[in-house]
Design a protein around this nucleic acid. Structure first.
Lengths: 238, 238
DNA sequence: GCATATTTGTCCGTATGTATA
DNA sequence: CTATACATACGGACAAATATG
């Protein structure tokens, strides 16, 4: 959903916001600032560990410190940045403990979605199959970043079977965090490709109503993905 | 300074904060303001639907509007207040949909804790039994509000068996929200008392390692509690 | 429907405390 | 230890939106 990134020069990373500063359509200014920063972080334009100076960012975005601080609160809410007391705001750096914890919560929430599959409306199950097909199409096109995005979408839809707004929200935040770890993967293809057939098989098991088998399949998926992330984190970083 | 003319914010409720305003122990001023408001909401001193005026509250607490707005962000984060754009901040009013959703997520998170029980450290299981005993003691003393608090603590500890900081955080927020619904219950005794023996039985099943049976017991607990809340909400409100 | 007062949204300037060089 | 840089918190100001008459 990020069509705003064609080719941006380092200097005008934050140009668009200043233009319509006067016209506050919907949502607060802080909300829009947070959205801009969220996109930049997801793209990797602001890599983990980057310090977000209030003065520098405020000047670049054309907003005041107070407004920027509110935007930081919103981002810290989703754990995309960390707010160190009296020291400033930094783009979040995920450690092995974070990855392990994220997969623990994913397991809990996605299993809840899976168990609700029998009572979920049919179009939700269709969306599940659609997300799988989307990932496979992206793979045929060789766009592995899109495969990763499709994989995240698949698991968002899977959790969405629970029909719970809070589970949707939590999973959304969790997977946005996880994207920080994906950015550090050396070979997106080797990471994402093995999971394509597993998502398809998982979808088929759910559609057949084989929930017990599906749960085991999902568990294996999550365990393996977590392990791959931890392995590469251990090699590159201490 | 005595802005008690308005009926929305009693002035004497917030005296203590002004006293130690100069000495900031730990945490920011906004954090402390949020804590105070959180307690007042949990106690029922600020019932659901109450409008929190920036000017009135800022005067009562002795903090500036900017600081107060940061505190509001923290509370909105935990869904204890809702922030309507250009209209102000209100103490959250829980509807039937909210209760249903909260119990859906509780089920997912507490089951995750339950399943992790075999690998959890023994002292955690002890804390579980301790929470049950605490609730029973409060019941013998006739303090049904304390029974409710102990019940929430029991389920926080249960989710904590998963050893996941995020599950702890989510469950914490969820149960703080749920307290808003507890406040509206006409008879705390009739609501909380039936669940005391169920918590004890659940604890015993977990300690015996009968996870399958324990999961069924937990599921029944959550279903019944949710139904009782929905029933009373339907009777009192439209 | 219109004019009013109230409240919120945003920004600025400044003083103070804290961490770092 | 001193000095600098930065974050925190305050109070004031004006524009915009809402509510009220």
């Amino acid at each position: 959903m990020d069509g705003t990134s064609s080719s941006t020069a380092p200097g005008d990373l934050f140009g668009p916001l200043v233009a319509d500063r006067a016209r506050v359509g919907r949502g607060s200014t802080a909300q829009r600032v947070a959205d801009v920063l969220r996109d930049r972080i997801a793209e990797g334009a602001l890599p983990p560990g980057t310090r977000l100076s209030e003065e520098a960012l405020g000047a670049a975005l054309g907003v005041s410190r107070n407004t920027l601080r509110e935007a930081f609160r919103l981002l810290a809410h989703g754990r995309l940045v960390v707010h160190e007391i009296n020291r400033g705001v930094y783009v979040r750096v995920l450690g092995p403990d974070d990855v392990t914890d994220i997969y623990t919560v994913r397991r809990a929430l996605e299993i809840a979605g899976l168990r609700a599959a029998p009572t979920a409306p049919p179009e939700r199950l269709g969306a599940l199959a659609g997300a799988v097909s989307g990932g496979e199409a992206a793979a045929r096109a060789g766009d592995w970043a899109a495969v990763g995005t499709a994989d995240l979408r698949f698991h968002r839809v899977l959790g969405g079977l629970a029909g719970s707004p809070r589970i949707d929200e939590y999973l959304n935040r969790l997977l946005a965090e996880l994207r920080l770890a994906f950015l550090a993967m050396p070979s997106p293809k080797r990471f994402h490709e093995p999971f394509l057939p597993r998502n398809r098989r998982l979808t088929e098991l759910i559609q057949r109503g084989a929930l017990h088998h599906a749960e085991a399949e999902l568990d294996g998926y999550l365990t393996d993905a977590q392990q791959m992330l931890l392995d590469t984190m251990g090699k590159n970083d201490t």
